Amino acid sequence: MHRPSRTASFVLGGLAAATLVTGTAAIAADADALLKAPLQGSILSDPPLFGATRGGAPWQIGTSEAKLELDGTVKVTIAGLLIPGVGVGQVRNVTATVACNGERVATTAAVPLSAAGNAQIKDDVTLPVRCLAPAVLINPNGNANVYIAATGH
């Protein structure tokens, strides 16, 4: 049976330690995240979510993300949220509604949606003590009963 050399053992040990430290740092960086997920534009066949209905047009979206932190901080980056061939239509601003435990629990303040379909939301909301299966819905013109994008794949 071949035994690894002392140098090989040292190198392998160093690699294992570096992997552990790097992995731990990546986990620690998002330790405060209750949810970190991409956003998808709503389409006409989407079902109601948490009592909100999908927008009345097919919405496309570029690379966008929603993050919900344990302390209730909501951070959403929206890029290219548009109706094909139309643009943003009548939507001038958006809000983010947070759902926990199967129901809507909070909505952020409205922020402007640019003509290119871009927006940045950063707000603090009050979450229930326990927030199971969190989700974020993007609402047009502050209407929390309608969503034009939502977290998911």
Rank of each mutant, 00 (worst) to 15 (best):
M1Q: 10
H2T: 14
S5L: 02
T7M: 13
T7L: 15
F10L: 14
V11S: 00
L15A: 05
A16C: 03
T19M: 12
A25T: 12
K36W: 11
A37R: 03
P38N: 14
L39K: 01
S45I: 10
D46F: 02
P47N: 11
P48Q: 03
F50M: 08
F50A: 11
A52C: 03
R54C: 07
G55E: 00
G55D: 02
G55A: 05
G56M: 14
A57L: 10
P58R: 13
W59D: 06
Q60A: 14
G62L: 12
G62Q: 09
E65C: 13
E65W: 14
A66V: 03
A66H: 06
K67E: 14
L68Y: 00
L68V: 01
E69W: 10
E69M: 12
L70V: 08
L70H: 10
L70N: 07
D71L: 08
T73P: 00
T73A: 07
T73C: 04
K75C: 08
K75M: 13
A79V: 15
L81R: 03
L81T: 07
I83P: 01
P84Q: 06
P84D: 05
V86T: 15
V86F: 12
V86P: 09
V91E: 05
V94N: 00
T97D: 02
V98W: 00
V98L: 01
A99S: 04
C100G: 00
C100I: 01
N101S: 06
E103V: 12
R104I: 06
V105T: 10
V105M: 05
V105N: 07
T107M: 02
T108L: 04
T108K: 05
A109H: 13
A110L: 04
P112C: 02
S114I: 02
S114T: 09
G117W: 06
N118Q: 10
I121K: 07
I121P: 07
K122C: 07
L127V: 07
P128K: 10
P134F: 02
L137M: 03
I138A: 00
G142M: 03
N143R: 12
N143F: 11
N143Y: 11
A144P: 06
N145T: 13
A150E: 09
T151S: 07
